[in-house]
Simulated assay, not measured.
Amino acid sequence: MKIKWFGHSCFLITSDNGTRILTDPFDETVGYSLPHTEAEIVTVSHNHFDHANVGVVKGDFKHIKDAGNFTHGDIGIKGISTFHDELSGTKRGTNIVFVYSIDGMSICHLGDLGHALSQEQLKEIGKVDVLLIPIGGVYTIDGDTAIEVIKSINPRISIPMHYKTKHLSFELAELQSFMEKMDGKKYPSNEITINEDNLSEYPKVVALDYI
């Protein structure tokens, strides 16, 4: 499969048979170029301007924004209820973590997770091959808590998201400190191709470039 980063928390995941999943599309105020793309599935972790701009997506797609179990062809999707802050949602509401079963692998998108995960939530998430994790703090977990979450989930690789770049229009923590602590590597592209056989060739933490 291919995983392409459009910036912020927005990724296009394309399965080997061509099914496309777009995660958390943002609006024009965020600073990145809008993800004008077609998709068969669009998942939204929560209804904020930088995650829920489904109107930008082309085509006839399935919009998933709730907890529960969903299927589309041979792709399984599980939505797991979490919170957007460390106070059970009293500051910023709820957040849905999505786990996608694609091409024999498990991809987990944490959305705007605002807290460390409980044992029950970790059990619901289950085994993860690729973890898409926010690290920028302010509105989500910060880099240190992200490291704790990575250790608790134990994915084969982790891809950071939701952090400050020169394109982002508001303040979050930058990538460098997190990458240094995790001995992460920057990938020279905004798209990565993964399969069961090549996952072990990547570093445990790989940041995609924004192009």
Rank of each mutant, 00 (worst) to 15 (best):
E40F: 05
K166H: 11
D144Q: 07
H167F: 15
V99F: 05
I194H: 15
L12S: 15
N154E: 07
V138Q: 04
H115D: 09
K164C: 04
K62N: 11
D142S: 01
F11R: 04
Y163K: 02
G55M: 02
V149S: 03
T82V: 15
F61P: 05
V97T: 14
E28L: 13
L131M: 08
I13K: 08
G7E: 10
V206S: 02
H167W: 12
Q119L: 14
C108R: 02
F61L: 01
N95Y: 13
K4M: 14
M105Q: 13
V149K: 01
R156W: 08
T140E: 01
T165W: 08
G184V: 01
G7P: 06
E201P: 03
N195H: 11
E148Q: 09
A67W: 13
Y100P: 04
E28N: 13
S169N: 14
N154T: 08
N198D: 06
K204C: 06
F170D: 10
I133Y: 03
G136N: 00
G68R: 09
I157F: 07
E86F: 14
Y187T: 06
N69Q: 10
I211P: 13
L113T: 14
G31N: 05
F70I: 01
H167P: 02
H109L: 02
H162T: 11
L12N: 12
N190P: 01
T165P: 08
E191F: 03
A67D: 10
P188T: 04
T23K: 03
I141S: 02
G93T: 05
S189E: 13
G136Q: 01
F11W: 04
H162C: 11
V99E: 13
D50Y: 10
I77D: 08
A116L: 10
G136L: 00
I125P: 10
Q121G: 01
I96Q: 07
Q121V: 13
I194G: 08
P134R: 01
N47Y: 04
S15L: 04
E28G: 03
M105Y: 12
Q176P: 03
I125V: 14
F170E: 06
H8S: 08
T14D: 06
A146N: 00
T23V: 02
S101V: 06
N95S: 13
G76A: 13
T193N: 13
S189P: 03
